[in-house]
Amino acid sequence: NKFNKEMRNAYWEIALLPNLNNQQKRAFIRSLYDDPSQSANLLAEAKKLNDAQA
């Protein structure tokens, strides 16, 4: 399933972002599970926040 693969990839990328705190990571990951079709958008948002907090 395409969404499962995208979701799994996004999950690990988000989990490993160095500048997000655990609460932020959990919120993004919860959103991934709520709507796997938004994986790419959620990952992009997480990366933006990660960069902003660098």
Rank of each mutant, 00 (worst) to 15 (best):
N1G: 05
K2I: 13
K2A: 14
K2V: 09
K2Y: 06
K2T: 07
K2H: 10
K2F: 12
K2W: 07
F3S: 05
F3N: 13
F3G: 08
N4S: 04
N4G: 06
N4E: 13
N4I: 05
K5D: 12
K5T: 10
K5Q: 09
K5V: 05
E6N: 05
E6M: 04
E6F: 03
E6W: 03
E6K: 04
M7H: 05
M7I: 12
M7K: 02
M7L: 14
R8P: 02
R8M: 14
R8E: 15
N9R: 12
N9T: 14
N9W: 10
N9G: 05
N9S: 10
A10I: 14
A10N: 12
A10G: 03
Y11M: 13
Y11I: 15
Y11W: 04
W12G: 06
W12Q: 15
W12N: 15
E13W: 08
E13N: 09
E13A: 15
E13F: 15
E13G: 08
E13R: 10
I14T: 01
I14D: 00
I14R: 00
I14E: 00
I14W: 00
I14S: 00
I14A: 00
A15R: 15
A15E: 06
A15C: 03
L16V: 10
L16D: 08
L16C: 04
L16G: 15
L16A: 13
L16H: 12
L17T: 01
L17F: 10
L17P: 00
L17E: 01
L17Q: 05
P18C: 02
P18A: 14
P18F: 04
P18W: 04
N19E: 04
N19Q: 05
N19C: 03
L20V: 04
L20N: 00
L20G: 00
N21R: 06
N21K: 06
N22L: 14
N22C: 03
N22Q: 13
Q23T: 11
Q23H: 11
Q24V: 06
Q24A: 07
Q24T: 05
Q24G: 01
Q24S: 04
Q24L: 07
Q24F: 02
Q24H: 03
K25E: 00
K25D: 00
K25H: 02
K25R: 10
R26D: 08
R26A: 06
R26H: 06
R26V: 07
A27D: 12
A27S: 12
A27E: 14
A27M: 03
A27V: 08
F28R: 01
F28Q: 01
F28D: 00
F28P: 00
F28S: 01
F28E: 00
I29C: 02
I29H: 11
R30S: 13
R30T: 12
R30V: 09
R30H: 10
S31M: 10
S31K: 09
S31A: 14
L32W: 03
L32K: 00
L32S: 01
L32T: 03
L32H: 01
L32E: 00
Y33K: 04
Y33S: 03
Y33N: 04
Y33D: 02
D34L: 13
D34G: 12
D34S: 10
D34P: 02
D35Y: 05
D35R: 07
P36F: 10
P36Y: 06
S37G: 11
S37L: 04
S37R: 07
Q38P: 02
Q38L: 06
Q38Y: 08
Q38V: 06
Q38F: 05
S39H: 15
S39T: 12
S39L: 14
S39N: 07
S39I: 13
S39G: 12
S39Y: 11
S39E: 02
A40M: 14
A40R: 08
N41P: 15
N41H: 12
N41A: 14
N41V: 08
L42C: 02
L42M: 07
L43I: 14
L43E: 02
A44V: 14
A44R: 11
A44H: 13
A46E: 00
A46I: 02
A46P: 00
A46S: 06
A46F: 01
A46G: 02
A46T: 01
A46K: 00
K47N: 11
K47Q: 08
K47Y: 11
K47D: 02
K48M: 12
L49T: 14
L49D: 03
L49I: 11
N50Y: 01
N50R: 01
D51E: 14
D51Y: 11
D51R: 09
A52F: 11
A52Y: 10
A52W: 13
Q53L: 13
Q53T: 07
Q53G: 07
Q53W: 09
Q53V: 11
A54L: 10
A54N: 09
A54Q: 15
